[in-house]
């Protein structure tokens, strides 16, 4: 990873999100789908100390311009509202690439990409890479409403098929991605599911994948204070190769985890059989 200053070159509305393009002259290590960036918000004397983490949408390096880093940001809290209201030319402190990205299959295999809302941002580059490896790519996008879908046109262009669900039925099938996913997987004989979105969606996707014997790779969105592995706030219960559950950091051990390794229903708790779990008499 590299810590660098980046200049905001474009800031455009896409549905209910903002598509931000940053430019830096810093040299970045290779960026792969699933990597994320941690951005300091509010300026150098900001009262908001914690970095905001965003899955990287796209990175391109051009000899004349430098490196562009694209993020898709939902203005939700004070930090994201500050970031998305910055004018072109504003400079931010950024760290990227962070985390463990998606693992790509070695052989051509049928893949499904499932994304909730702006979770689609890193999936466009992923879809391109899967296609270039000869994989079949089906896409399932979901959001609460049409304005919160992202990347529909891009993914339509790349994918073999695309299915859309919205909670309110404003576009595509009314319902959740989990309502249409089993059919898509059956038709395509899917071997790997790539997912990015809220925890509930990732849990549903992992359950469906397990039922069909497909591998699920899930990029989690857990709140982080530092993004670089030192604060220990972004933990979730994950089963390791030794079969033991540990509270692991989603910033450095993730954000991409195998769906069958995360104890989804116990996220937000410390399972009693977790390594070092509190004893009945208290921690």
């Amino acid at each position: 990873m590299t810590q660098f200053r980046a200049r905001l070159a474009a800031n455009k509305a896409v549905g209910e999100y903002r598509h931000l393009v940053f430019i830096t002259s810093a040299e970045l290590p290779p960026v792969r789908p699933g990597h994320f960036a941690a951005v300091a918000v509010g300026g150098p004397d900001s009262a908001m100390l914690l970095r905001r983490a965003f899955s990287i949408h796209r990175v391109q390096t051009k000899a004349t311009v430098g490196t562009t880093i694209e993020l898709v940001v939902a203005p939700k809290g004070p930090g994201t509202k500050w970031l998305t209201s910055q004018p072109e030319g504003a400079v931010v402190d950024m760290i990227a690439p962070l985390g463990k990205p998606f693992t790509l299959p070695k052989a051509p295999v049928a893949c499904v990409i499932v994304a909730g809302g702006y979770g689609a941002a890193p999936m466009i580059g992923l879809a391109e890479q899967l296609r270039s490896r000869g994989c079949r790519v089906d896409v399932v996008l979901g959001a609460s409403t049409e304005g919160r879908l992202y990347g529909v046109l891009d993914l339509k262009r790349i994918a073999d098929s695309i299915s859309i669900t919205t909670d309110d039925g404003s576009l595509g099938t009314q319902g959740y991605v989990s309502d249409v996913l089993p059919d898509v997987m059956r038709r395509a004989d899917t071997g790997v599911v790539y997912a990015c979105g809220p925890m509930g969606m990732l849990q549903a996707v992992s359950t469906i994948a397990a039922q069909t014997g497909a591998i699920a790779q899930c990029a989690v969105e857990e709140s982080m204070a530092c993004g670089v592995g030192v604060c220990m706030t972004c933990v979730l219960p994950v089963v390791g190769d030794d079969g033991l559950t540990r509270m692991v950091r989603s910033c450095t051990d993730g954000p991409v985890f195998r769906g069958d390794r995360v104890r989804w229903s116990e996220v937000g708790t410390v399972p009693s059989d977790c390594v070092g779990a509190p004893k009945p008499e208290g921690h």
Binding site: L50, S223, T269
Partner: peptide
Amino acid sequence: ARSGRATPRMAETPSGMINSI
């Protein structure tokens, strides 16, 4: 070895944060 507490483990506060790791 110690697992620490359940999440959420932190919240941002004005010019600071509160944690329960």
